[in-house]
Amino acid sequence: MPAGEHATVTDESLVACVRSGDTVAYGSLMERYMARMQRYIRKFLFGHEDAEDIAQEVFTKAYVHLNQFDASRSFSTWLYRIAHNECINAIKRKQREPIPFFDPDTLFPHPVARETPRDHVERVELRMLVETSLEQLAPKYREPVVLYYFEERSYREIADIMRIPVATVGVRLARARTLLAAAHVRDAAGHP
């Protein structure tokens, strides 16, 4: 497929081209997602790692394991999953923040956790607010916030990226909002 046509085809079709040996198609996929991956990594790791290096590693791993990708599912979610693993590995390597082996939030069902139309409005309003406070959140709350408010992923996509129950995504976002609100109040009190 000529390089110019790549802009109009789906991710999954590009993956099929790459699998059949079209390296340029992989370049097009990287063009599509490199900036998004760097933004996600930068926000998740909050600037403590080189987002460019990690994003490069994400695309290296994605290429090596491309035959593992199930074309009936979303390529972007699969790519975010690889990036999630790389970020978790980076956090573990630096031992900067604790990553719990087991999270009780994932054990039992939660009554909350459905996306509502109000969420979209809230998403736009909160995006500005949370950007400055992200570092105050633990990784398990920071990641769904980044994926939801900045990467505009749905609850189900976030569940697939983080491999946690869909309801847990809602619980973590709700808790993150509470923590961010408390941090905002603290900051406002400290800086009149």
Binding site: M30, M34, E52, N67
Partner: peptide
């Protein structure tokens, strides 16, 4: 300036990066 896209494509073209075969995944 370092371009990560060209870097990855260059590694693929030089044969330094190879896709895992479907057989090995299977």
């Amino acid at each position: 300036m370092h371009d990560p896209i060209q870097h990855v494509l260059g590694r693929i073209e030089r044969g330094e990066l190879r896709m895992r075969s479907k057989i090995s995944i299977l």
